[in-house]
Amino acid sequence: MKLKGKVFKYGDNVDTDVIIPARYLNTSDPAELAKHCMEDIDKDFASKVEPGDIIIGGRNFGSGSSREHAPLAIKASGVSCVIAKSFARIFYRNAINIGLPILISPEAAENIEAGARIEVDLDTGTITELESGRTFQADPFPEYMQELIKAGGLIEKVKREVGQWQE
């Protein structure tokens, strides 16, 4: 699967408190959460983001709270994929579990600038900067996570397993 969009770029340690501040966690409605996504570090994000756009972060993206509202808000805002130098572990789990594609590529995170248009090939992990044609390679997912992604997320996988037990 190929994703295409323009880049929103942020630095290291983008934490889940800035992705979606706790003052909005009295709801779990993704559309409502998306309205406030990133607002404490980028007031314009919610109004400027378009379907398919891609977030690039630095090290330790998604650090802090376990709130799944963070990847949910990103996904509901239309973002197709997040690329970073590294992800905090709970955010990493949550993104995979809910089907938000995330890729680890320090080179892409280092070299691609905000506003660039890029294409991400999720099958190969290749990230292409469309204007320059430069390509970057993301780390492949471990086999178990590939299965999870193919199944359509954790709930779909568990549903199948539970179905098998019940039979």
């Binding site: 376990s66 709130r67 799944e68 990847p71 709970i90 789990r93 949550n94 579990n97 809910i98 178990y144 999870l148 997320g153 954790l154 709930i155 568990v158 397993e161 539970v162």
Partner: peptide, 17 residues
């Protein structure tokens, strides 16, 4: 710590990855 989807899966099955 895990997320809400992990919580849901574990509440149903008693297991997690």
């Amino acid at each position: 710590g895990v997320g809400s989807t992990d919580l849901a899966a574990a509440m149903a099955t008693g297991h997690l990855w």
